[in-house]
Amino acid sequence: MAGINLLPTELLPSAGLLKTAKLLKSVLTVGFGIFVVALLGLVGFFAVNALSLRTSTARQEELKNSIKSFEQTEQGLVLVKDRLAKVKEVEGKDSAQNEIDALSNLFGQVPPGVSLSEAVVSKEELDATFVVGDSSVLGQFMAGIIGTEGFTKIDLLSFSFNPNLGYLVSLGFSSK
């Protein structure tokens, strides 16, 4: 049965308003549709992330157990690294090692007729006194000293002559 509207026509909403209301309803329907789809997408995304998080946590547990089985190796590695750091620290300290190496080199280069009388090795320098038998060897000895590498400075500390021994040459070698 057709509905009977007894309202005067001037009280009815205009056609434009009715059209706008209808458009609004359509927009709302689409809006709700988009909202539901977006909500489902959000929930799906959340679920995927939760799964990924769970997988990662399970993998972490697996790795932690595996690492625990290498505990002795890890202890060894930590000890090796710690000791190596300490060795580096010791090697970085000032020592007389360079001067001892220098003394060893110098000793090998001394020509016959020259002998080491005294040597004082410290962290800073090497002071050495040589006894040179005669003047003919002196030139050869000094030439050898001048040609020695590894020193930044060689000081002639003293030079004297003893008729019983020969020439006494004191030299200060500095490598720093």
């Binding site: 060795v87 090692q97 005294e118 090795v121 962290k123």
Partner: peptide, 12 residues
């Protein structure tokens, strides 16, 4: 163990 020579005095 590793060491460092601090000083040495050689006399002949």
């Amino acid at each position: 163990p590793i060491s460092t020579v601090e000083k040495a005095k050689v006399n002949q």
